[in-house]
Amino acid sequence: MHPVVSTVLQRLGLGLLTLFMVSIIIFSSIALLPGDFGQQVLGQTALPETVEAFRRELGLDKPAWLRYIDWIAAVLQGDLGTSFSGRASSGADESRSVWELIAPRLSNTLFLASFTALIAVPLSLFLGITAALKRNSIYDRSVNAMTLTTISFPEFFLAYVLIVALAGTFPTLSNVTNDMGLWERIYKIALPSLTMTLVIVAHMMRMTRAALINLLASPYIEMAQLKGASRGRVIIKHALPNAWAPIATVIAFNLAYLVVGVVVVEVVFVYPGIGQLMVDSVSSRDIPVAQGCALIFAATYILLNLLADVIGIVTNPRLLHPR
């Protein structure tokens, strides 16, 4: 087997192992949350016997390890469980499956994240490469200063500034629905997408610039210069191919943030994403939904970092073309 394939498979295995460990952490930390779903739903006045019966019905009376095994076994079969909400003290059961709750929210989040990434990643690569090319010029300094400014403000503040500045041009409520067309959706998410772009561009751009400049001190870069290569050629042809690994790592980190870290932006723009769902489920002690969201977040992080690792491996000729 080609060593790259075996390395990638090995990383994939490690990723799965990590996900499994994370599932234990998620389960235990949610089990440690104070308060009780039964008490929460039935209210302070409920009789202890009623609460007890309700807990038995949801399986909350079983020991934690047994509940974990039940949960993880179901997850492995693709079943994230059933939401606790929708049940009432009246006995009516309108509860829905966790996946049914998460799916539309996840697709909204992924839509916003992909659209933002589509703008932010090329933009930051472009800014990073050109800044490295014109190192220490006025252009370099102003790009640095600007991105540093945008990353220094809290994201909700940026969001409100954008609302104030662009409220006439773009909608300030991003309440997308399923029946909207693509363009209308894009129009609706313009402001949250712009906010997040401003937040992540700085990090990616600075890392791209730093990775390239770091390589510019290499003897092979001097060699390329002494072969008469132009500045652009030196950066694009000689530095960039060796800089993908660190750049991919920082991009993966920021893309993961786009999926899992945007709850504040979602709240500001009332965007129905998965971040809000998770916060709601935690505050209402809807354990299956909270666990499902957390697991999806963890998987996103692991998957994106795995991808960055793979890019680092396949762009390394030492691994790709062994002796």
């Binding site: 003897p219 092979y220 060699m223 390329a224 191919p241 060796n242």
Partner: peptide, 14 residues
């Protein structure tokens, strides 16, 4: 043309 001291470092690994 220029021939550098350390060929190992002066060739682009990529």
């Amino acid at each position: 043309a220029y021939v550098a001291q350390s060929a190992a470092a002066s060739f682009n690994p990529a």
